[in-house]
């Protein structure tokens, strides 16, 4: 099985179990770098796929929570190189994904990136400032190692483009629930169902919904129309408050049934 197929399979397995797949996101090395692997392992014990956020100095698609965690992680010396070093030799079975803005990946070098990712169990990438039209080089480098580039679609994406992106996506299709940045707490939009149904209909692989998913109700809501729910800012806030991330995720999985 190619690495990116493990992502799709993990989501389908959850669904076959009668669950909405849960995809937690954490900013790497936040709040404390030395707790990173322990946090990741505990989260991976509950999540079906785990997203690792690579901190970047200019997170233009992120709200205050992820901005804060990114800046703090950078201050604490967290870099892509460091993240791979922590991941070396890990025993996590859950497929891992990296979410990173483009520039840290460019600076690392695409070929080395794909090699290190394959070596450490990272199955794919989400790059929020890389639209499909600019992605050929990165996709080629990732594909050479069986890794996937996850495409995002948003409520602003026209139907034709939505289909093109869904077909180009690997692992899952990231359906952004709102027109906006991460970390909002305005709740999910009223017309979410129709939108998620349309993305799912256009997509040959599972669709996971993300942005603004904070509570069990949101997961239940989204789960009726998508294969998975991505939980980012809410989880980062749990870490920020020094609370137990596994307990928080557990409270969401009850809803995912």
């Amino acid at each position: 099985m190619l690495a990116h197929e493990k992502i799709s399979a993990a989501i389908r397995d959850a669904n076959a179990d009668g669950r909405t797949a849960l995809v937690p996101f954490v900013t790497a090395g936040y709040p404390q770098p030395d707790e990173f692997m322990a946090t990741l392992e505990s989260i991976a014990g509950i999540g079906d796929v785990v997203e690792i956020g690579v901190p970047f100095s200019d997170p233009m698609a992120d709200g205050m929570t992820i901005q804060r965690s990114s800046f703090a992680a950078i201050e604490n010396g967290v870099t892509l190189r460091w993240i791979f070093e922590q991941l070396d030799g890990n025993h996590i079975d859950t497929p891992l994904l990296m979410m990173s803005y483009l520039n840290p990946l460019l600076a690392f070098g695409y070929e080395k990136l794909a090699e290190r990712a394959r070596e450490t169990g990272v199955c794919g990438f989400i790059v929020p400032d890389l639209p499909y039209e600019e992605s050929a080089d990165l996709r080629a480098a990732l594909e050479a190692q069986g890794l996937g580039l996850v495409q995002l679609v948003t409520p602003a994406t026209p139907a034709g483009r939505r289909k093109m992106l869904a077909e180009a996506s690997r692992g899952f299709v990231y359906a952004v629930t709102i027109t906006g940045i991460t970390g909002g707490d305005d709740g999910l939009p009223a017309d979410l169902a129709g939108y998620l149904d349309a993305v799912t209909a256009a997509s040959p692989i599972p669709v996971c919904a993300g942005f603004g998913i904070r509570a069990a109700d949101d997961v239940r809501n989204v789960g009726r129309h998508a294969a998975g729910a991505i939980v980012g800012s809410a989880l980062v806030e749990v870490l920020e408050r020094g609370e137990n991330p596994a307990e928080f995720l557990q409270s969401l999985t009850l809803a995912a049934r």
């Binding site: 233009m60 698609a61 483009l102 929020p128 400032d129 890389l130 639209p131 039209e133 600019e134 495409q151 995002l152 679609v153 948003t154 602003a156 994406t157 026209p158 483009r161 992106l165 952004v176 027109t179 906006g180």
Partner: peptide, 20 residues
């Protein structure tokens, strides 16, 4: 037509802004 000045330029933006 892709907004390039040789290798420089292009359009690296969030998907939400692509239609805009």
């Amino acid at each position: 037509e892709r907004g390039r000045f040789g290798p420089f330029g292009g359009r690296y933006i969030p998907e939400t802004l692509v239609p805009a």
